[in-house]
Simulated assay, not measured.
Amino acid sequence: MKALIFDLDDTLYNQEEPFKRAVQAYLPVQDGQMGDLYIAFRLYADEVFEAATAGDITLESSHIYRMKRALADVGYAVSDELAITIQQEYQENQGKLSLSPEFPAIFDYCRQNKIRLGIITNGPHLHQLRKLQSLEMTNWISEYVTIISGQVGVTKPSKEIFDLMVEKMQLLPEDMCYVGDSFENDVAGAKAAGWKAIWLNHRKRKQPQSPYQADAVVEEREELLGVIEQLVSHSVTQFEAEQQGKANE
């Protein structure tokens, strides 16, 4: 493994926190309901993401749809106006993000072991860029190896967006490993492109039917560094075995 590439949303930071603050500013949703509400919100967002990206529906319509449907699942019927108001509050909160505390150690480990870092994220260019700036990601990862779907016109899980990163890194697909929280976009997308993949399944979602399997599954961010170390160690051992095999030919 020569490069480790990260998803952004709900991977590098806990996306539920800004969402929770936005919802609870307007509705008496209890903390115990928030986990299920947020998962529903993400599922409904995925349903309309491609249509909004293609221009088949407006971005505002997709925001209304995902907010209203998710809130209805936990017993709150809201107007379009309130759905947009909560969405706007959510977007404001996304300008005040904090990097999950496990990642500085992961980035330092990668630097020490000459593993290159990058980001691939789906979403509107300026919106995602604002999040990256809030997280101060350029302290660790350069803008050159940060790919935002809204800027390049290709979205995960399309193979093309992973190929763009391979081209930027000047590496082979088998040298690349992707870390993300979405099985469909992150794991299946990366594996279809010939990469390794770590599924950060901290929402404990059920794996969908798929011809692909993650190389590792992590349910807590605290476990991620250890898994990365194992994959790096395995890559080194495999490389040494291959070199020994060549020497014996």
Rank of each mutant, 00 (worst) to 15 (best):
M169H: 07
F103I: 08
E60K: 14
F107A: 04
A190K: 11
L200Y: 14
D175E: 09
A54Y: 04
M176G: 10
A83Q: 02
A214W: 06
I161K: 06
A247C: 05
Q238Y: 13
V187W: 03
V232E: 10
N14A: 04
M1K: 10
M34A: 06
G150L: 03
V187G: 04
D80K: 11
E50L: 12
Y44R: 11
I57N: 08
S182W: 01
I86A: 01
V23A: 12
S134M: 05
A197E: 06
E240A: 12
E220A: 12
M169I: 01
I148T: 03
E219I: 05
N185K: 14
S233W: 02
K131W: 09
H125F: 14
V166E: 13
N93S: 01
E174F: 08
G189A: 02
R130L: 10
R116S: 13
N185Y: 12
G118D: 00
Q88Y: 12
W140L: 05
G95Q: 14
S61C: 12
H202Y: 10
V74W: 03
G150Y: 01
G55H: 05
L4D: 04
Y65T: 09
T85E: 13
H127L: 13
L43T: 10
E143K: 09
Q15E: 15
A40H: 13
N14W: 03
T237R: 15
M67W: 04
E143Y: 04
Q33P: 01
F103S: 06
N139C: 09
L59K: 14
Q170R: 14
R21S: 13
E223W: 11
Q91M: 13
E102M: 06
H234N: 15
L12E: 05
P18C: 04
A51F: 12
Y76F: 15
E89T: 11
K191P: 02
E16W: 05
D31Q: 14
K131N: 06
A70F: 03
S98N: 08
K168S: 07
L117F: 09
L12Y: 02
Q238V: 13
V236E: 11
M169C: 07
Y212L: 03
A197N: 07
S182N: 06
K159L: 08
M34R: 02
M67C: 01
I228E: 07
A54H: 11
A25N: 09
L99N: 10
G95M: 10
K2I: 00
F6K: 00
S98R: 13
G118C: 02
E223V: 05
M165N: 07
I64E: 11
Y109V: 06
R111H: 08
G75M: 07
S235A: 15
K196Q: 15
A105F: 00
R69C: 10
T121Q: 10
R69Y: 12
K131C: 01
G245F: 11
Q128S: 00
L82R: 09
Y109S: 01
K2R: 08
G95C: 11
G123W: 05
P124K: 07
K20T: 13
T138L: 07
R221M: 09
G35I: 03
